[in-house]
Design a protein around this nucleic acid. Structure first.
Lengths: 219, 219
DNA sequence: AATAACTTGCACAATAACGTGCAAGTTAGC
DNA sequence: GCTAACTTGCACGTTATTGTGCAAGTTATT
């Protein structure tokens, strides 16, 4: 923690090291939420001691990880506002796919003590969006009606995580992953695989790359 | 650990306490695989010290938990031998449902060090059965062909776990859980929800209660 | 080149969990 | 009711991890 208002500009490499630590933490804690700071530091090519030069303590590091992740996910989802609930659901899945890392970290860490509250808030927001889309889909007959919306929403949520998890151990290209995320979501929600495939292919919004209102070159 | 060949018959309450510990461990470790023996013992109404009267050490307890679980699951699955791969898959899901606890414990603990090897064996057996059924299903056109069998098998596997997990926090009756397990499996494998529903309802083997060749009274 | 910013290694205290020995208690079985 | 089987509490040593202080080094910036 560099407090006391530096008399000179902070060094650039320090910021890089901070990023290295966050990246390392993301990777390491994803495998084992109880991993030691020693492990994280080593993975970042730094000493355990220097972790405390950037973060007050373990929880502080975790908190930053989850907070920035939450922000990413939140901003990725607030753009989803399609009128058709089925398309909306697919878009949610698709957008989540791009934030895999953030989502995974939050999911893994969500159980732990002090962070649980903090995480629940962001996760809660996603959950509401999802619940709404599902209820609407059940109402208009585009989604399965043999399960209560509550349970279906949870199943969709967990299934999405399954896809994300699986993709880290058995990598997929961006496009493949994006499609798989949508396919699985639609499957859980009641569509047969042919149906789901043609549904996606029929909607330009669900095509890759999508959700880029301003396709700037070089970005 | 009662070694040294007792000169008198071992006491019955000791065996009960041993069971209590195993039950407690199953519940506690399911929530948190890193929970302390103190926690487990307390949950069993015993002292931490007495754990060591029944198990050599923490890993020994874990091992017993996983081993008996594995045996249960294995024996539950070796009876599944239906010719139609889709039905076979549904039967696997159905049978697993009855062994939720065992499956969950294995899944949760599977990651840990010394047990990983041991668990992998049993889990591997299930995995083969599953893989075979899926390849066969893809070949005869009853299952989705837009994903490689490998990945589909993993997705089916993980989705089954999702159902089991969800059912512990939001309970289901035996019949409901059984049906949901099958429905989700069929969904992942490519069936639409109507299709899956009528498929199950059309097969007497998939009806509840099923897989009880000798429905003895009182068992 | 000067110097503040940063990293490192080491020592240290604190905590939590494991596993064990032992003495003193309870309790089931004979 | 005797006695062995079992449980318990406590003390102890061990290990892993966290968080801190400080002195000595390195390095980016000016």
């Amino acid at each position: 923690m560099v407090t006391f208002t530096p008399q000179r500009a902070p060094r650039r490499d320090a910021a890089e090291n901070r990023e290295s630590l966050l990246t390392a933490a993301r990777i390491v804690f994803n495998r084992d939420p109880n991993a030691s700071l020693e492990t994280v530091a080593a993975h970042a090519g730094l000493s355990r001691r220097s972790v405390y030069g950037h973060f007050a303590n373990r929880d502080d590091l975790l908190l930053e990880l989850v907070t920035t992740g939450a922000r990413r996910v939140a901003s990725a989802l607030e753009s989803v506002t399609h009128p058709d609930p089925l398309t909306r659901l697919a878009l949610i899945a698709s957008n989540l796919w791009r934030e895999v890392e953030s989502v995974r970290v939050m999911a893994v860490v969500a159980v732990r003590g002090p962070l649980a509250h903090h995480t629940a808030e962001t996760l809660g927001a996603i959950r509401s969006t999802l619940r709404a889309a599902i209820s609407e889909g059940q109402a208009n007959g585009s989604m399965r009606a043999d399960l209560p919306a509550e349970r279906l929403a949870r199943l969709v949520e967990d299934t999405a995580l399954v896809v994300l998890e699986d993709s880290t151990e058995h990598p997929l290209s961006g496009q493949e992953g994006n499609r798989l995320a949508m396919l699985m979501t639609l499957a859980v929600v009641g569509l047969g695989w042919h149906e789901a495939g043609t549904f996606i292919d029929g909607k330009p919004e669900l095509t890759w790359p999508q959700s880029r209102p301003n396709p700037e070159v070089g970005s």
